[in-house]
Amino acid sequence: MSVKQASKKEKPIILITNDDGVSSLGIRSLVEAMDGLGKIVVVAPDKPQSGMGHAITIGHPLRLYEVELFEGVKAYSCSGTPVDCVKLAVDKILHRKPDICISGINHGSNHSINVIYSGTMSAAMEAAIESIPAVGFSLMDYGAEPDFTASKQYARLIVEKMLQKKLPRHFLLNVNIPKASPDELKGYKICKQAYAKYQEKFIERKDPHGRSYYWLTGEFVNFDKSKDTDVWALANGYVSVVPVEFDLTDYSLKEKLEKDWR
Rank of each mutant, 00 (worst) to 15 (best):
F148Q: 08
K47C: 06
G187V: 10
T81F: 01
Q49H: 13
S212A: 09
V159M: 02
F171W: 14
D35T: 14
K92S: 14
V239G: 00
D19K: 02
K166T: 14
M162F: 04
C78T: 02
P146C: 05
T229H: 01
W232S: 07
G51Y: 11
D230V: 05
D84Q: 04
D147L: 07
A196V: 07
M52L: 12
F70T: 10
D19Q: 02
S24H: 08
L94H: 05
M140K: 13
K227D: 15
T249W: 10
D183W: 01
D147Y: 03
A233L: 01
G136A: 07
I190Q: 06
V86C: 03
A180L: 05
E66D: 06
S79N: 07
G38W: 11
L234I: 13
L163T: 10
T229Q: 01
G143H: 07
G104E: 03
T17E: 12
D207Y: 03
V231R: 05
Y117E: 10
K259N: 10
S131N: 15
L64V: 12
H54N: 14
A124Q: 04
P168T: 13
T17L: 01
A196S: 14
A124F: 00
Q164L: 14
E245R: 15
K4Q: 15
K11A: 14
G59K: 09
G59H: 13
K225A: 12
Y117F: 10
D247N: 15
S226W: 03
L216E: 14
D230Q: 03
P243F: 04
S138D: 03
N110R: 03
P182G: 06
Y154C: 09
K87A: 08
F246K: 15
V83A: 07
K166A: 06
G72M: 11
K11Q: 09
I58W: 12
K201V: 02
P208D: 12
